[in-house]
Design a protein around this nucleic acid. Structure first.
Length: 677
RNA sequence: GGCGGCGUAGCUCAGUUGGUUAGAGCGUGGGAUUCAUAAGCCUAAGGUCGGUGGUUCGAGUCCACCCGUCGCUACCA
């Protein structure tokens, strides 16, 4: 049975280059697509650039070009990066396309008709200088909780607090540093909660891996919230029909890009889009002709397991059969880092190393789980050299040249031993196919390597270099088996190593190998001169690649390139300072707080009175070390009710929070209760 | 703290519904070879499967607790 399959990878954002982290997904997906094509299935692979939203708009502004020009440039770069890594999309399109606009408007309209869209006023930060509403990430300021400076508007990287930009102390616009104002605006919302039951059914049908389903259950338990799907202009995106200055939020039209890419392909290739992805003119039940699959990373599960299928359901479009979620890439066990040089772009990798190495390495470590995948440099070098060079390439290179140089390059026929070898290798087919299908590429690779080992042992046992002197025809028989083994391996490896497979095809004088070629053997056939298959990797080359990827660590933890002069707060006068009553206090008692791991309960001697303060310093100080110490106490801060009691003011400390807390201490002579001026 | 994941040889990872002496690759030691891109072959060493209890005739595999680690989430005025 010929299956018809449509596959997508997540749309990379058009604001930066493809890097080796992205490539986990594209390589994983591409292998799956190539595998299906190898099996003779109709398999179409669609993707596109995700082009809309504030970051693209601002990048274009900064570059002094229109966003259209920016995304065009990035599109070219992305296409080139994917080509280098042999990621073969059937269509690589753009969300900034007429098709995408059409489907975005259509889906929005249908969701509206279904009563799933509501309008509501929201308060948001607005920068009058930039003349735009500021997304959370574009507001910077001081964390309202730990007072760390230069934090994003949604959460603090120092103390991991989450808050709204409007809660920040001294918020500023991240681009121009102006102080944003609060503005009220009407936004459109998608009522996600209306789809809870239908989503649960979908997930119950095995839409995601079980571990992802568990995570989704947590979100269901927490309650599905309405999703803000509009943004006020100026915004780079599609205008909402009937509105003069409101646009679809980038995350609304991004996944619709899958549909747009498919539609664009169908129109070009003369395929019936309505059968491929039913919904526009037909109801989903009309056709199950095509199986639909999405590949994504775990960071965007919420969008693809909740918003996206709900949108499709609400608009009457077909939803995917499965969502395959993978983990992140780590390098040498750590997060990719620009300063360590492990943030390697696709282009840089391709400059230094054979891109098939990465395909092979990822394949050898990928499975169907959402676990992070570690690129261990040492392991990478070993695996490439040992498997690709030592096993696969070597098998061909110890048989092909001998045959072409000494035996006219002509295969003979298999004897019983040779037939047995090839039969054993072909017998693994169903196991390998199953493992490919189930995304267990690590198992695929282990199977194939074991077969290569067996073929290498076969050469060893037959010693063709000896028999060549005594019995050339027997040698021909041996090498016929070995060449057939090479051919079988090339078929199995083709989804992972398409270039290697092409070279083997050329060397063996064959046309495009497919899985069906395993049904036959190669006999009485002439082969071409051997061509080099893989070069060894030197650790040096990898080091060089890492070196050229290194960027100096920028100040601050955000990786942002803001200048180095510390930003001080707005000026104030003595009367402002006068409102603040700072006192010397002595710590009389300090205790841990039951149920709070960062809080200490301090009893302070503030002259004639005692005060109770809950201080977030438990990670930095032990209670017993604090008793007797003098501290600076903010006495007239309004008492705050907390889960663990009321805190009357606060003690002053430097540091970013967490373990980085350094209490201020007055010099000797200061007495509890003394005013600090 | 809550929820969830993870913790198997030096390294990277397999271990199917619990079933005989726990596996692979790389790396390391030894050996025999030399056709081959200094590749390949044989062989050895190396693990109380994070810890402690429990269920079971039997547990890396199930349960509880603990430790470590990661993610989300909460207090941290």
């Amino acid at each position: 049975m010929t299956r018809k399959i449509v596959v997508t990878s997540a749309l990379p954002y058009a604001n930066g280059p493809i890097h080796i982290g992205h490539l986990v997904e594209y390589i994983q997906t591409d292998i799956w697509v190539r595998f299906h094509k190898l099996c003779g299935h109709e398999c179409l692979y669609f993707c596109a650039d995700d082009t809309h939203g504030t970051p693209v708009m601002l990048s274009a502004r900064a570059a002094g070009i229109p966003p259209e020009q920016l995304i065009e440039k990035v599109h070219r770069e992305h296409v080139q990066d994917f080509e280098r890594f042999h990621v073969a999309f059937d269509n690589y399109y753009s969300t900034h396309s007429p098709e995408n606009q059409h489907f975005s408007e259509l889906i929005f309209k249908r969701l509206d008709e279904a009563g799933s869209i509501v309008k509501r006023q929201v308060e948001q930060a607005f920068c009058e200088t930039c003349n735009m509403a500021l997304p959370d990430r574009y507001v910077k300021g001081t964390c309202p909780r730990c007072k760390a400076e230069d934090q994003y508007g949604d959460s603090c990287e120092v103390c991991s607090a989450t808050y709204r930009p409007t809660d920040m102390v001294n918020p500023t616009c991240a681009t121009c540093r102006a102080v944003p104002v609060l503005r009220s605006s009407e936004h459109y919302f998608f009522k996600l909660a209306d789809y809870e039951e239908r989503l649960k059914v979908l997930i119950g049908q095995g839409y995601t891996q079980p571990s992802v389903a568990n995570k989704l259950q947590e979100w269901f338990d927490a309650g599905l919230k309405d999703w803000d799907i509009s943004r006020d202009g100026p915004y780079f995106g599609f205008k909402i029909p009937g509105e003069s200055d409101k646009y679809f939020y980038v995350w609304l039209d991004a996944p619709i890009g899958y549909i747009a890419s498919a539609k664009n392909y169908c129109d070009r290739e003369g395929l019936d889009f309505n059968r491929l992805w039913p919904g526009e003119h037909a109801s989903p039940s009309d056709s199950d002709e095509y199986e639909l699959y999405h590949f994504i990373g775990k960071d965007i599960v919420y969008f693809h397991a909740l918003f996206w299928p709900a949108m499709l359901q609400g608009a009457g479009f077909k939803t995917a059969k499965k969502l395959f979620v993978h983990g992140f890439l780590t390098v040498n066990g750590e997060k990719m880092s620009k300063s360590r040089g492990t943030f390697v772009t696709a282009a840089t990798f391709a400059e230094h190393l054979d891109t098939e190495y990465l395909r092979y390495y990822y394949a050898s470590k990928l499975n169907d789980s959402v676990h992070d995948l570690d690129l261990s440099i040492e392991d990478f070098v070993n695996k490439v050299n040992s498997d690709l060079v030592g096993k696969f390439a070597n098998l061909a290179s110890r048989s092909g040249p001998m045959l072409t140089k000494k035996l006219e390059g002509r295969l003979g026929e298999l004897d019983a031993d040779g037939r047995a070898l090839i039969d054993r290798m072909v017998a693994e087919r169903s196991q390998i196919v199953q493992a490919y299908e189930a995304l267990k590429y690590g198992a695929v690779v282990r199977h194939i390597v074991a077969l290569a080992d067996e073929a290498n042992r076969y050469v060893e046992s037959k010693r063709p270099w000896d028999t060549l002197k005594t019995d050339p025809e027997l040698t021909r028989v041996t090498l016929t088996a070995v060449i057939n083994a090479v051919r079988v391996l090339a078929v199995y490896l083709k989804p992972i190593l398409p270039v290697y497979a092409r070279k083997v095809e050329r060397f063996l004088g064959l046309s495009e190998l497919t899985m069906a070629d395993l049904d036959s053997v190669l006999e009485n056939h002439s082969i071409n001169p051997f061509e080099h298959l893989f070069k060894r990797v030197e650790a040096k080359q990898v080091k060089k690649m890492i070196e050229s990827s290194k960027e100096p660590e920028t100040s601050g933890s955000s990786g942002d390139s803001s200048n180095d002069t510390p930003s001080f707060k707005e000026q104030c006068d003595m009367s402002d300072f006068g409102k603040i009553d700072l006192r010397v206090a002595a710590i009389k008692e300090a205790d841990t707080v039951e149920g709070a791991d960062k809080l200490l309960r301090l009893t302070l001697d503030v002259g004639r009175v005692d005060r109770n303060v809950l201080a977030g310093i438990a990670l930095a100080y032990k209670p017993e070390d604090l008793v007797g110490r003098k501290v600076v106490y903010f006495s007239n801060l309004k008492p705050r009710k907390m889960r663990f009691g009321v805190s009357e003011g606060m003690v002053l400390a430097a540091g970013g929070g967490g373990k980085e807390v350094y209490l201020l201490e007055p010099d000797d002579g200061a007495q509890p209760g003394d005013e600090i001026r």
